[in-house]
Amino acid sequence: MFDLNALRLAAQTVHQTLAPTPQLAWPLLAERMGCTVWVKHENHTPTGAFKVRGGLLYVQGLLAREPHIKGLVTATRGNHGQSLALAARSLGLSIRIVVPEGNSLEKNAAMRALGATVIECGKDFDEARAEAAALAQTRQLHLVPAFHPDLIRGVATYALELLEAVEELDTVYVPIGMGSGICGLIQTRDLLGLKTEIVGVVSSQADAFAQSAEQGRLVCTDSANTFADGLACRQPLPEALEIIAKGAARVIRVTDQEIAHAIRVYHETTHNTAEGAGAAALAGLISEQSRQQSRRIALILSGANIDRQLYASILAEDCAPSAKS
């Protein structure tokens, strides 16, 4: 996809707009997990999620290739859309963003505040994606995909920051939505010549990538009904699956209950806010806690964009799921 020089150039571009995010080892979290745990805080970006890195690089590259582009359209559950809205506004482009009906009110509001026209259509992300493709045709807009080499190279800059800052990591847990984050992490790990294992985490309610990795073929599901909207994929992309199948140690499932528990653990041990997808990596570590004792682990806290009422209801719950072996 890209070499190390291209990745470093991407980091220079991204860092013109946002500073590197911290990777912090939280003592209370380490005590609770029984291992050293570094958290990569992508919840600290200007849009509250890692996607902003890819959006900035993608739109700049697009204008260099096609300088007469007037408008963009894309589909999202929120973080991808915010990243593109910020990039489009900074470069004077209009953007239409299609979200599923009933999408996060606060994510919708954030995209509108960045100048985007938000359109609600479809029962889930994949139906919203089809509507975005139709709008691209009828309105003669550039359709921004969910997975593209520039998006991957952009988000891979968080992996470069993490893997160069923290030595000898045994395992990194990373959530999987459409795959740009984990694919960028795999490529960066390989470019740096590291042996760190990478574990992808999906929701058990949206496990198309897990099924696909296990069966060695593309598997689509009928639904992706998880409150962790950043994980709500039911139609994996073959390009992403190929990279994950070759480069990830495994893809594991966590339940929505386990994700909610991880949100509470983040709050209790670090006082950071995590959205559902953002907490999935920690939920994955908790589910594999017994196999990671005394090791060096990193978690990708990919975003913090969770609606207040949902966050409050999760924090109010005291129940914890039983641990897996």
Rank of each mutant, 00 (worst) to 15 (best):
F2G: 01
L7I: 07
L9S: 14
L29Q: 03
R32T: 06
V37L: 01
V39S: 02
N43D: 15
T45Y: 00
F50L: 04
K51S: 08
V52C: 09
R53M: 04
Q60W: 02
L63D: 00
A64E: 14
E66A: 12
L72N: 00
A75S: 11
G78F: 03
A85K: 06
L86Y: 14
R89A: 10
V98M: 01
P100K: 01
I119G: 04
D124W: 05
Q137F: 09
Q137H: 11
A146G: 13
F147G: 01
D150Q: 11
V155R: 03
A156G: 09
V166A: 06
E168L: 09
G177I: 10
S180F: 00
S180K: 02
I182L: 08
L185W: 06
E197S: 12
S204K: 12
Q205I: 08
A206T: 07
S223L: 11
T226N: 11
A228W: 08
G230V: 08
E239Y: 06
I243E: 05
A249F: 10
V254G: 06
I259C: 04
I263L: 05
A277L: 10
A277C: 12
G278T: 07
Q292I: 14
Q293L: 14
R295T: 12
L299D: 08
D307G: 03
P321D: 01
A323Y: 11
